[in-house]
Design a protein around this nucleic acid. Structure first.
Length: 268
DNA sequence: ACCCAGGCGACGA
DNA sequence: TCGTCGCATGGG
């Protein structure tokens, strides 16, 4: 039995749709039960989150401020959405994805998760991340494990990760953890530089190319200008946008446009 | 048996 | 700069 401190009303559900936000492919640690209650852990805070009667409620031991930060509730999505409407196709994407918010995930967790994501499918990514946490993360509540920090993974070998069954990605994970742990790669600092510089720094890691670096920057470094292009985005760009379309037209919040397009293409 | 999955890096042209 | 291929693993 898990005892949590308190339940808060976080915001109205027109501002935050938890199903879309958790299922749009940006995170791998939140799962709903049959009643639609999401359980997961962010920055070592376990939470239960649900929507009811027009509001989103959070039960956790973390203050409201923390969840406002995590869900980026200070960001004006209505205004940003409007800025995308110069591109015709965005109207249907925004309509379908309304209520998605780009989470401010823990930087190392985002980087590590998206290294795992390469050439993989979402259920298996979630499974590998789950085993990683259960095997190497701190048990913050009975049966609930935090994402293991880079300092923890840095002390392991690729063989130690064999229970994950993550194949050739294991050495990439170890190498990235060591770079972060040693300070050679300063993820907090990369929040403060340009999106392009952040991506370039991430791409110095073995096994981190443009796509993984873009996802780590967008989801873990608050770099909303980055626009990850994967197979789904390539498909979407080909099908719904003119030849030679340049996504930079979406400006400083291109990453949010990307999420709408991606979600509309995959149709969760 | 094949093919693919929110890719990457090495290689050859 | 471009296409091609191997890389582990598991599911359809």
């Amino acid at each position: 039995m898990i005892i949590l401190a308190n339940t808060i009303e976080l915001c109205k559900e027109d501002k935050l749709n938890i199903t879309k936000t958790f299922e749009c492919g940006q995170c791998f640690r939140w799962n709903a039960d049959s009643a639609g209650i999401y359980r997961g852990i962010a920055y070592s805070h376990y939470a239960e989150i649900y929507s009811e009667a027009g509001s989103v409620y959070v039960t956790s031991d973390a203050p409201k401020d923390f969840w406002e930060y995590y869900f980026a509730l200070d960001t004006d999505y209505d205004k940003i959405d409007k800025s995308f409407l110069s591109v015709d196709y965005m109207r249907e994407c925004i309509e379908y994805g309304k209520g998605i918010r780009i989470l401010r995930q823990e930087p190392w967790e985002a980087l590590c998760s998206f290294i795992i994501s390469q050439c993989n499918n979402i259920p298996r990514i979630k499974n590998i991340v789950s085993v990683l946490c259960r095997k190497f993360g701190d048990e913050i509540l009975p049966g609930e494990f935090a994402f293991p920090g880079a300092e923890k993974i840095a002390g392991l070998t690729a063989e130690d990760l064999s229970p994950l069954r993550c194949g050739y990605r294991a050495p990439y994970i170890i190498n990235a953890a060591r770079a972060v742990d040693s300070g050679e790669l300063d993820l907090e600092m990369l929040k403060t530089v340009s999106a392009n510089d952040a991506i370039s720094s991430l791409m110095k890691l073995n096994g981190v190319g443009l796509k993984v670096a873009s996802c780590a920057a967008l989801y873990g470094l608050c770099q909303l200008k980055t626009f990850p292009v994967d197979v789904w985005m390539k498909k979407a760009l080909k099908a719904h946008f003119p030849e030679g379309f340049d996504w930079h037209i979406f400006g400083d919040y291109a990453g949010i446009a990307q999420q709408y397009i991606f979600f509309n293409e995959r149709k969760y």
